[in-house]
Computed example of a mutant assay.
Amino acid sequence: MCLMCCSSKAIEVLDTSYLHVNYEAKLKMNKEKKHINRNVVLEIGKDVSVCYDSKFRQFIALDDSLKMVRASVGEWIRTMENNGTLGRTVSFAVYKHLPAMNELTYTDEIFRYLYYYEQELPAIDWQMQNADSVVCGYSCSKAVGEWRGRRWTVWYSMDIPIDDGPWKLQGLPGLILHAEDAQGDFFFTCVGIEEKRSPIILWGDHMRKCTPEWFQREITEFWKDQSGYVSFRNGMPKPDYSNTDFRPQSFTPCLMENYE
């Protein structure tokens, strides 16, 4: 696992949102664990949109402020615990139309190391279905599409003619208000939409640039052996697992997309 080149990306304002879409997300991050519930927000601006877990955004803001005052490890832990941001597990953010139109920037973390990569927006071959429903009070149509090893079913509303949706999903003539994959690992359901103007910010300082394939391999290695991974990243010898009582549990990540 070789480290990719580093790049310092200070917090910067990219656009101004005019719409905030709140999704109730049910995510299974590892095959061996249960689903976790999160509030995922999609901020839509004139040129750029961003989708992120609101709890992790709070974590990043707190972490930045604690770094500025050079808080001790104990102070850092207490502050995170008091704000309910210590046990975060969903750290992705997806910026659509960044760095250019029809491209996206994906940011994520692995054990407090922040990474980002850039790629083209998914070209999902959506198949329109003869079905309708109502999500969050909006009339919706159904579409099904496959993308990198997952089959997604979505409900989108042409009452909101915006080509966007949760995570990397997009490419339809209306905003995606519900999405789920065929394996039942990931669900996003809109629970509220509000007109709201606020700066769309690129969060994360000193992020390391990588590729999607590299990040997938790295996150897989992390979940296989978290203690060994942390030791490796800090230049320490791999832990001695001769005593199996102390061997960490190995997990298999439920990757939203498969690059292999």
Rank of each mutant, 00 (worst) to 15 (best):
L177M: 07
H178N: 14
K196M: 05
A179Y: 11
Q170I: 05
K168S: 08
L177C: 13
T211I: 05
D205C: 05
Q170K: 13
D181R: 02
G174V: 03
I193D: 01
E218T: 06
E194M: 08
L177S: 09
I219T: 13
C210W: 01
L172I: 03
G171N: 06
H206V: 01
C190F: 01
L175T: 12
P212F: 07
Q170R: 15
V191F: 02
S198H: 09
M207E: 05
L169E: 06
T220I: 14
F186K: 06
M207T: 05
E218P: 07
G171S: 04
T220Q: 02
F187S: 08
S198K: 11
L202W: 08
E194C: 08
D181M: 01
R208S: 09
P212H: 06
W214Y: 11
A179K: 03
D164G: 10
R197D: 09
D205W: 02
W214L: 08
E180N: 13
E195M: 07
K196S: 09
F187T: 04
K168L: 14
Q183R: 15
F187C: 10
L202H: 09
L202I: 04
W203T: 03
V191A: 11
E195D: 10
E195G: 11
Q216L: 11
R197W: 01
R217C: 09
D164N: 15
I219N: 13
Q183E: 15
D164F: 03
A182V: 15
Q170M: 13
W214M: 10
I193S: 00
A182H: 14
K209R: 14
Q170W: 10
K196V: 05
I200Q: 07
E194W: 00
P173C: 13
E213W: 05
I176G: 08
G184D: 10
T211W: 02
G174Y: 03
L169F: 12
I200N: 04
A179V: 01
W167Q: 04
P173W: 10
P173T: 09
F188A: 02
P212A: 04
H206C: 08
E218C: 04
P199R: 00
F215G: 02
P212D: 11
K209P: 00
K168E: 14
G165T: 05
E213D: 13
I193A: 01
R208Q: 11
H178E: 15
F188Y: 15
R208K: 08
K196Q: 09
K209Y: 08
G184I: 08
E194D: 11
F215H: 12
T211M: 01
K168F: 15
G204A: 02
E194Q: 14
I176F: 13
S198L: 11
D185A: 01
P199S: 04
L169A: 00
C210K: 00
L202A: 03
W214P: 03
H206R: 12
K196Y: 10
Q183S: 14
G192L: 07
